[in-house]
Amino acid sequence: MSTDSSAPKPPAATPGAGPPADPPGFELPLRLFLGFRTLIDELHAELARQGHPDVRPMHGFVMQAIGTRGTTAAELGRRLGVSKQAAGKTIDALERIGYVERGTDPGDARRKIVRLTERGTDSLVRSARIFEDLRAGWAKTLGEDRLRALESDLRLVTPPDLFRLDVPGWFGGYQ
């Protein structure tokens, strides 16, 4: 994010003037994104400390989309909302760092299946544990009741599908 000083700023509170005015509408998506970014940055810092320094935020989406059974590059592209070629490049990168491997489909030797390696699975298991710790940190800061209320409120205003993995395509990258 740019620190462009020409960007609109929320109105400043005047001491003794009562509650501040509602923040401008553009602040909500930015705050939600910053909350996401904070969690993801903290996750990756901890993953690096735990032996996974090469994992990047996009890799998590990709490994989740590969899943426990594996998938083809074409199907991975569909799940991520990107081209088969873009999915293939990401598979190549993850294969180079040891998180996925290619193999043949036992049901059809012409199909190549991408599967998580033990290292890839380990990074996802560690990520789940780290997210639990990060949530606990937010609960300590906000209070468990307020965090549960925030989570409940977000469930009211978002679709029920937690695992939308098409973020790469949605952001417009990897086409």
Results as ranks from 00 to 15, higher is better:
E132Y: 06
V114G: 00
G143Y: 08
A109Y: 11
G137L: 07
V114E: 01
D145C: 07
R119I: 05
R111Y: 04
S127G: 11
R126S: 10
G137F: 02
I130E: 02
R110C: 13
E144Y: 03
D108S: 12
R146P: 02
F131C: 05
R126H: 08
R126P: 00
I130M: 09
A128F: 05
E144W: 06
E118P: 00
D105M: 12
R135V: 04
I130S: 03
S127W: 01
G107S: 11
G107Q: 10
D122F: 03
V114D: 00
T117E: 03
E118W: 03
S127I: 00
R111F: 06
K140F: 10
E118D: 15
R126V: 11
R148T: 12
R110E: 12
V125S: 05
R148A: 11
I113K: 06
W138K: 07
R119V: 03
D133C: 12
I130R: 02
R129N: 13
S123K: 02
S127Y: 03
A128D: 09
D108N: 12
A139N: 04
E144C: 08
W138Y: 07
G137K: 09
D145M: 10
I130A: 06
A128E: 09
K112G: 02
K140Q: 15
P106Q: 09
D122T: 09
R115K: 15
R110S: 14
T141S: 07
E132D: 15
R110N: 14
G137P: 01
V125M: 08
L147F: 05
A109E: 13
D133N: 13
R146K: 15
